[in-house]
């Protein structure tokens, strides 16, 4: 048996690591992966609270979050491919202007 707060704190730790990746990484693909990590941490919170409240709505919500994350990954990676084709770089420090 494990207290529910352990699950929530684990999710908080994962979320903070995702924020750290978002802040410190310079590769645009890795930054995108940090966003996915944050989404996963929030999903863990949803599932553990769904367990705690004995309600399935939280799991349904996680399902929708997963679908939206899949769509977001598709679009985001397509944008990354387009950006790379125009700038020949994946470093976010070099992609800080809208014009070429």
């Amino acid at each position: 048996m494990v207290p529910l707060s352990y699950y929530l704190i684990l999710a908080a730790i994962l979320f903070v690591i995702g924020v750290a990746g978002f802040l410190f990484k310079r590769n645009i693909v890795t930054i995108f992966m940090s966003v996915e990590l944050m989404l996963n941490a929030v999903n863990l919170t949803f599932v553990s609270l769904s367990y705690s409240l004995r309600q399935l709505d939280g799991q349904i919500f996680v399902f929708f979050v997963m679908v939206v994350a899949a769509a977001e990954a598709t679009i985001g990676l397509a944008i990354i491919i387009t950006v790379f084709r125009n700038r020949e770089s994946l470093n976010v420090d070099r992609i800080d202007l809208m014009k070429l």
Partner: peptide, 29 residues
């Protein structure tokens, strides 16, 4: 946590499909 459906979806959709997309793009670029 008793969420078997989500566990399977997590493996198939996230660890499977989404991450394959990531690895594909990393290797493509």
């Amino acid at each position: 946590l008793g969420a078997e459906f989500l566990a399977v979806v997590q493996v198939i959709v996230y660890a499977g499909a989404v991450m394959v997309l990531f690895v594909f793009v990393i290797m493509l670029l």
